[in-house]
Design a protein around this nucleic acid. Structure first.
Lengths: 161, 161
DNA sequence: TATTGTTATACTCTATAACTATA
DNA sequence: TATAGTTATAGAGTATAACAATA
């Protein structure tokens, strides 16, 4: 029953770092929960919505490409696509030159769903950051980019520790 | 094939908000992925580690309390606990006054696992924020708190739109 | 009658491995 | 021989509903 991160008498800069990381975790949790709730209202899951989002913004592509973009196995794409297809949002079509591959496209309904997601995204951005002064926002994004760079760096196999 | 969020000729403040939200989403994804990788190395999943974390920091409690803390159904807690128990990390014990309830405690091994997670957390905080100037960090947390407040506000049923 | 935790059932996301059809 | 997508199988997280034991 130790206390929540950092209550001992550590270095104050460590305390600040702990506080910041705690906020980041909470943010990730709440952001995902909110997104999931929003998507559920549209009959979508996060994984399926992500696939939809990529096809919407990057255009038709093969399942293999989606597999790489999403960072999941090809088998997983098959399942996600099955769901989207059953919901009438996506379609499998023939690839023009490679008869092994399928070209994933959105139906009209899928396109509309993605557009609605996009609109929701824009609205959310305004709601979260509309009140933040431009200078603060710039500084915020700078720090965020630093953190992202660190995290991405940690992901590279060489830099494990 | 519309472009990734915001490329049209919108209001520059809208562009900044879009950019910030895009960073937040990326951060949530990468942070969770990194955490999951780290936990997998310790034979834990995120859901189970969260339960462990709560019991470690808040002390023994009933499954019902865990259900509320984690925001999942009681049935779900049963499953998570089954896994932790099979791994030798948690234990179900009798509740001192309510014979319906079970009191969840950590084994020595579970306590050690939680302590290791805690140490990893501290190390991660240093790695992500050790280089950030104190003033920037303060401003960062302030903005983060604003965003969190907005998100929590959106979660309340009354404020759905 | 309400609460605690469970059994039963089901859906989604995810993975590996083996297979088919193409390249 | 290698690649694209599938079937087969499995584990984990999540949910609802029905039930037993206890309050």
């Amino acid at each position: 029953m130790k206390r929540i991160p950092n209550v001992g008498g550590e270095d104050p800069s460590e305390a600040a770092a702990d506080a910041a990381l705690a906020r980041l975790f909470e943010l990730a949790v709440v952001l995902f929960r909110q997104m999931q709730r929003d998507l559920a209202g549209r009959g979508l899951t996060r994984a399926r919505a992500t696939l939809l989002w990529y096809v919407y913004h990057q255009g038709p592509m093969t399942q293999r490409q989606l597999s790489r973009l999403l960072g999941v196995t090809p088998r997983n794409v098959t399942g996600l696509l099955d769901g989207l297809q059953a919901a009438g949002l996506a379609r499998r079509g023939p690839h023009p030159t490679d008869r092994r591959a399928t070209l994933v496209t959105l139906t009209e309904q899928g396109d509309a769903a993605a557009a609605a997601m996009h609109a929701g995204y824009r609205q959310g951005a305004d709601r979260l950051f509309g009140d933040v002064p431009a200078a603060d926002l710039t500084s915020f994004v700078t720090t965020l980019d630093h953190v992202l760079a660190c995290l991405h760096d940690m992901e590279r196999p060489a830099n494990q520790a």
